[in-house]
């Protein structure tokens, strides 16, 4: 034991929580994802996008935006419930960051390696529509209230197909631990091959859970003026926007872990780079949804969620069952 500060800064647990894959890397990657989304959407729509904030294609634009938003004036609307109005986005950000503690980024680089990683991830995610409703209700304004109610209805449409699409992975891999699922894929190949339908359902329902286009009903800009985010002033608006990118990162990492073999890959390239290459691929795919698809209506989402998505997820469970138990001899 020498200098306690040196000991602390070289402590693995400290580094995992504070530096990588913890808080600092989440903040930086969230800001970079914001830039990537704006640039990619702009290029798809034949615009230029962020350009001036740095020599390399405006890559520092989101950092400039964060500094600007952080020091703007706070105006709470009249009649708002101040405590819940402020605490709802703060709690949403904590929830988003907690998701990344469960992901195995490389062998040994994982904050919480628990036996029930997958259900814990999905259970934490379930809380976020409630926080959206709370934020919308506490603002004492009509657009946020409608946005919050839409988030609640939308949850009923995607939640059950989201759980059931991951059920196929649990049946085939025989474990609920995310590390265990990756180790299963080391022996038997990526799970996207036997679970293609499940992967498709997972990416659709997780896009709905992240409230991204084509399912961004709670914050539809052109209908209800950013919905539940409408009344948030500068610094709180930054807190509201943060969880969106953190959840995009977390869900892409979960998709990589469940279906694309996580950190597995041929040897010369280190596992962590494989993980980030696959995650970036999924992130770009979800961002391309945003720049290409139009928004669905709420009743369309509810009807399709309860009929098409639910039926397909039950078919996926049947496929997974026959993969595990074996096809009956006819």
């Amino acid at each position: 034991m020498g200098n306690p500060i040196i000991d602390l800064l070289t402590n693995t647990y400290f580094l995992e929580i504070v530096v990588f894959p913890g808080l600092t890397s989440i903040a930086i990657l969230g800001a970079l994802l914001g830039w990537l989304e704006r640039k990619l959407t702009a290029r798809v729509q034949l615009r230029i996008g962020p350009q001036y904030a740095s020599p390399a294609g405006g890559i520092l634009q989101m950092f400039a935006d964060i500094i600007k938003l952080l020091f703007k004036e706070v105006t709470i609307p009249e009649g708002a419930d101040t405590f819940f109005f402020i605490m709802a986005p703060v709690t949403a950000l904590i929830i988003g960051a907690a998701l990344l503690g469960l992901i195995p980024f490389a062998p040994g680089i994982q904050i919480a390696n628990i036996q029930v990683g997958l259900p814990v991830f999905l259970a934490i995610v379930t809380l976020s529509p409630t926080l959206v409703l709370l934020a919308g209700w506490s603002a004492n304004s009509k657009f946020p209230f409608i946005g919050g109610l839409r988030a609640l209805f939308q949850q009923t449409a995607y939640e059950i197909p989201l759980w059931l699409s991951t059920l196929g992975v649990v049946m085939v891999a025989g474990t609920l631990s995310l590390t265990g699922i990756v180790q299963y894929q080391q022996n038997s190949g990526w799970l996207i091959v036997p679970q293609l339908l499940g992967a498709l359902l997972f990416i659709i329902t997780s896009t709905a859970e992240m409230e991204r286009l084509p399912f961004d009903l709670p914050e539809a800009e052109s209908e209800i003026m950013m919905g539940w985010q409408a009344e948030y002033p500068g610094p709180l608006f930054m807190l509201v926007q943060g969880p969106a990118f953190v959840k995009l990162y977390a869900f892409s990492a979960l998709f990589t872990t469940l279906y694309l073999g996580g950190y597995l890959g041929p040897s010369p390239i280190p596992p962590i780079l494989w993980f980030f290459a696959k995650t970036l691929l999924v992130i770009v795919l979800i961002m391309l949804f945003r720049s290409t698809f139009p928004r669905v209506r709420l009743d369309q989402l509810l009807r399709q969620g309860w009929t098409t998505l639910l039926t397909l997820s039950i078919i996926n469970i049947i496929i997974a069952y026959f993969l595990v138990v074996g096809f009956p001899a006819i």
Partner: peptide, 10 residues
């Protein structure tokens, strides 16, 4: 702040 500033957005 004036009442207009604190009013909800519509």
């Amino acid at each position: 702040p004036t009442p207009e500033k604190r009013a909800p957005f519509e």
